[in-house]
Simulated assay, not measured.
Amino acid sequence: MDIDQILIKSLVQNGGLTDEDIAAIAGVPIAALAGWKSGHAKPPRHALILADLGHVTEHLAAYYTPDEIRHWLHAPHPQLDGTRPVDLIRHGRSIAVSAVIDRLDGDVFI
């Protein structure tokens, strides 16, 4: 298994995301994700989005279950001006999402 396959497997198992979620966040057809999962294709420019998504879900796993993580990522967030975290990650703005999660480390309820 290569690093991309491991990351996708982790997003499903630990992040509670479906294949459809991952494909939508990366902005690719589900068939492209299937190729990445099988190792027959590489996620060229989408690798950064997957890495950011992996980082965010890994950080959230310290506080939430996989189902809660999926909900957190897809729900509009008040500390992100009502934007869904997945939309920010998709557009390369995962730093804003990470900043909200970092507040959990300071015992701030979100």
Results as ranks from 00 to 15, higher is better:
residue 48 L to F: 03
residue 65 T to N: 01
residue 50 L to E: 09
residue 60 L to D: 05
residue 46 H to W: 00
residue 25 I to Y: 01
residue 33 L to Q: 02
residue 45 R to T: 11
residue 46 H to E: 12
residue 22 I to S: 06
residue 52 D to T: 05
residue 29 P to S: 10
residue 69 I to F: 04
residue 40 H to S: 14
residue 40 H to R: 15
residue 42 K to E: 14
residue 38 S to N: 11
residue 58 E to Y: 03
residue 22 I to K: 02
residue 29 P to V: 14
residue 59 H to Y: 11
residue 35 G to T: 06
residue 42 K to C: 05
residue 42 K to N: 09
residue 57 T to Y: 02
residue 26 A to V: 02
residue 40 H to P: 01
residue 23 A to H: 06
residue 63 Y to I: 04
residue 52 D to V: 07
residue 61 A to H: 08
residue 43 P to T: 08
residue 44 P to T: 03
residue 22 I to F: 01
residue 51 A to L: 11
residue 53 L to A: 06
residue 53 L to E: 03
residue 48 L to E: 13
residue 26 A to L: 13
residue 24 A to T: 05
residue 56 V to P: 03
residue 52 D to N: 12
residue 49 I to P: 04
residue 29 P to G: 10
residue 62 A to Y: 04
residue 46 H to M: 09
residue 69 I to M: 03
residue 34 A to H: 13
residue 68 E to W: 00
residue 29 P to I: 12
residue 66 P to E: 08
residue 58 E to G: 15
residue 34 A to L: 12
residue 20 E to G: 07
residue 42 K to R: 11
residue 53 L to K: 04
residue 56 V to I: 13
residue 31 A to M: 13
residue 41 A to L: 13
residue 73 L to G: 02
residue 35 G to N: 12
residue 47 A to R: 11
residue 66 P to I: 11
residue 67 D to P: 05
residue 33 L to S: 07
residue 40 H to A: 14
residue 47 A to T: 13
residue 51 A to K: 09
residue 28 V to Q: 09
residue 53 L to C: 05
residue 27 G to Y: 07
residue 37 K to T: 07
residue 53 L to W: 02
residue 50 L to I: 09
residue 30 I to D: 00
residue 50 L to Q: 06
residue 65 T to G: 00
residue 25 I to T: 09
residue 65 T to M: 07
residue 54 G to E: 03
residue 38 S to C: 09
residue 23 A to W: 04
residue 55 H to A: 15
residue 39 G to P: 06
residue 71 H to V: 15
residue 26 A to N: 01
residue 26 A to D: 02
residue 52 D to S: 10
residue 65 T to V: 10
residue 71 H to R: 15
residue 40 H to N: 13
residue 43 P to W: 03
residue 47 A to E: 10
residue 63 Y to K: 02
